[in-house]
Amino acid sequence: MGALSAQSVAVSGTQPTYAAAGASGDTAPVGDRLVLHVVNGSASTVTVTVATPGTVGGLAIADAAQAVPAGGGAFIPLSTVYRDPVTGRAAVTYSAATDVDVAVLHLP
């Protein structure tokens, strides 16, 4: 499991650095204007799941899942609703990690 760091996006543009998705998942910072950019270079759709550790009225809140098509990409907002109370970070898992790259971007 990798600990992803946020990269600031400059108003003039940024060429981010991507990391390979962790086979057992990753953790990411959460907060305003933070997004996880997922690039799926594989030949199959990959589902990215962000754990939602909270509850409402004692009932668990469903995790957020985003399907990323083969050869496509997705932006997933990393709001504070995903903050794990122990680590302070979001827990992210992937249905498959081969040929999947990720970056956490802090938008201006």
Score class of each variant (00 low, 15 high):
Met1Leu: 09
Ser5Leu: 14
Ser5Asp: 13
Ser5Ile: 11
Val9Gln: 12
Ser12Cys: 03
Ser12Ala: 13
Gly13Asp: 09
Gly13Ala: 06
Thr14Leu: 11
Pro16Tyr: 15
Thr17Pro: 01
Tyr18Ser: 02
Tyr18Leu: 12
Ala20Lys: 08
Ala20Glu: 07
Ala23Lys: 06
Ser24Asn: 03
Asp26His: 01
Thr27Ser: 06
Pro29Asp: 14
Asp32Gln: 15
Leu36Ser: 01
Val39Tyr: 06
Val39Trp: 12
Asn40Pro: 00
Ser42Leu: 06
Ala43Trp: 08
Ala43Val: 12
Ala43Glu: 10
Thr45Phe: 04
Thr45Asp: 05
Val48Gly: 04
Thr49Ile: 03
Thr49His: 07
Ala51Tyr: 10
Val56Phe: 14
Val56Trp: 13
Gly57Gln: 11
Gly57Arg: 06
Ile61Asn: 14
Ile61Ser: 12
Ala62Pro: 04
Asp63Tyr: 05
Asp63Gly: 03
Asp63Arg: 07
Ala65Cys: 07
Ala65Asn: 12
Ala67Val: 06
Ala67Phe: 08
Val68Cys: 04
Val68Tyr: 08
Pro69Trp: 07
Ala70Leu: 12
Gly71Phe: 13
Gly71Asn: 06
Gly73Leu: 12
Ala74Thr: 02
Ile76Asn: 03
Pro77Ala: 15
Leu78Glu: 03
Ser79Asn: 14
Tyr82Asn: 06
Arg83Asn: 06
Asp84His: 11
Pro85Phe: 14
Pro85Met: 15
Val86Pro: 00
Thr87Phe: 03
Arg89Trp: 00
Ala90Lys: 04
Ala91Gln: 06
Ser95Asp: 02
Ser95Trp: 02
Ser95Ile: 01
Val100Ser: 03
Val100Met: 05
Val102Asn: 08
Leu105His: 11
His106Ala: 15
Leu107Ala: 10
Pro108Ser: 13
